[in-house]
């Protein structure tokens, strides 16, 4: 092994302090590099929604909605919501993994904006939601889905999905911060998410459900989000639907973002 060359041990002064946004973008860049080096992660992200789309459409579609085409038209916006929410769980797992490795120790000993790593995580999440959402949408289109509201409807739908991902993301960021093992984050995450996703109007209209369940489904934030998304993509969305859809993400952000910062500082 050679010695280190003294030339490089010359004194290097720190450059002008970068802004918080610049720090966050660097973390975003890291998230993008992860896609390059670990493309497998995308596989996890999209396989479940693809299977759900195919299974529900072809196995249950006819029975649930009269024809597979009708069902796909109903189901596709819902599966996009499900994909985004599931993705957030993976993101919390990723954070828990990172925190376990001491990498964050270094980040925390740097003079940077303390929230930058999370902002970067969100950049990565948005990118993942975008990639996964696009793939699901493309498959839907191939199977015969038609977005009646056109391109602008779809853009609006994706914006809403990003907001949902951002809001729900905090739940799993906080869990990632508080729970040491990534597997536990996943188990608890899915235990919380499954009832929300399945007891919603993603798969079926709640008309045939018992009253107590229907009451839950009607007030489930996932149902509000799904309804707004259907409206955005299929046409006929109302302002009120969008507001209802945004309640949960906004509340989660307002409460959990500061809580995450406290948990991070305390670690």
């Amino acid at each position: 092994m050679n010695d280190i060359t003294p030339a490089t041990l010359k004194h290097v002064e720190r450059p002008a302090r970068p802004g918080g946004m610049s720090n966050a973008l660097v973390f975003g860049w890291r998230a993008i590099l992860k896609f390059k080096h670990v493309p497998e992660q995308l596989f996890d992200l999209i396989m479940t929604p693809i299977m759900f789309t195919l299974l529900f459409t072809f196995v249950f579609g006819g029975a649930l909605a009269g024809s597979t085409d009708n069902y796909l038209q109903f189901f596709l916006p819902g599966i996009l919501v499900q994909t985004v929410v599931f993705n957030s769980v993976y993101s919390g797992m990723g954070l828990s993994t990172d925190l376990g490795k001491g990498l964050f120790e270094r980040f925390r000993s740097l003079p940077i904006w303390p929230l930058a790593p999370f902002a970067g995580l969100m950049v990565g999440d948005v990118l993942r939601h975008f990639i996964a959402g696009s793939i699901i949408l493309a498959i839907g289109l191939m199977l015969g889905y038609r977005a009646e509201a056109g391109v602008f409807g779809v853009i609006g739908a994706f914006l809403l999905l990003f907001a949902v991902g951002f809001g729900f993301g905090w739940v799993f960021i906080l869990m990632g911060l508080l729970i040491r093992t990534p597997m536990t984050v996943m188990t608890i995450g899915f235990t919380l998410i499954f009832p929300l996703v399945f007891a919603s109007n993603i798969m079926v209209e709640p008309e045939t459900m018992p009253d107590w369940l229907r009451a839950f489904v009607d007030h489930n934030p996932i149902s509000f989000i799904t309804t707004a998304l259907r409206g955005l993509m299929g046409g006929g969305v109302t302002f009120q639907q969008i507001l209802l859809a945004l309640i949960a993400p906004v509340l989660l952000t307002v409460v959990l973002a500061p809580a995450s910062l406290v948990a991070y500082r305390r670690k």
Binding site: P15, K101, L103
Partner: peptide
């Protein structure tokens, strides 16, 4: 314990930190 990003290359790890420093 090594505080490196295992998934990134050595160069990318250093670049990441250099950029965070500004």
């Amino acid at each position: 314990f090594a505080s490196l990003d295992e998934d990134l290359t050595g160069r990318e790890n250093l670049l990441l930190l250099a950029r965070l420093w500004g």
